[in-house]
């Protein structure tokens, strides 16, 4: 079967965007041999979600969001 990492990435990105649109923020990242577990938290409702990011593009995507988040926090 052909590898279509792009489709896998789109799925990860959509999941990630879903939580971002609700106001979740990245609070922790666990890197492992199986990919990254990104811990997201919705502060006002004290809800925590974990996303397992397996694709390289997915890792780039959440890193871009994480850096934007950090820049906003540091302003």
């Amino acid at each position: 079967m052909k590898l279509s990492e792009y489709q896998e990435y789109i799925t990860e990105r959509e999941k990630f965007d879903f939580f971002m649109e609700q106001g979740f923020k990245i609070i922790e990242v666990n890197e492992s041999l199986s990919g990254d577990i990104v811990k997201l938290k919705l502060e006002e409702k004290d809800i925590v979600e974990n996303l397992h990011i397996k694709t390289a593009n997915g890792r780039k995507y959440y890193t871009n969001i994480m850096i934007m988040q950090l820049n906003l926090t540091n302003v």
């Binding site: 990245i26 609070i27 922790e28 990242v29 666990n30 890197e31 890193t63 994480m66 850096i67 950090l70």
Partner: peptide, 12 residues
């Protein structure tokens, strides 16, 4: 830059 951001966010 990614590694710096990960360390700031508290990556493990």
């Amino acid at each position: 830059e990614r590694q710096k951001a990960l360390s700031e966010i508290g990556a493990k």
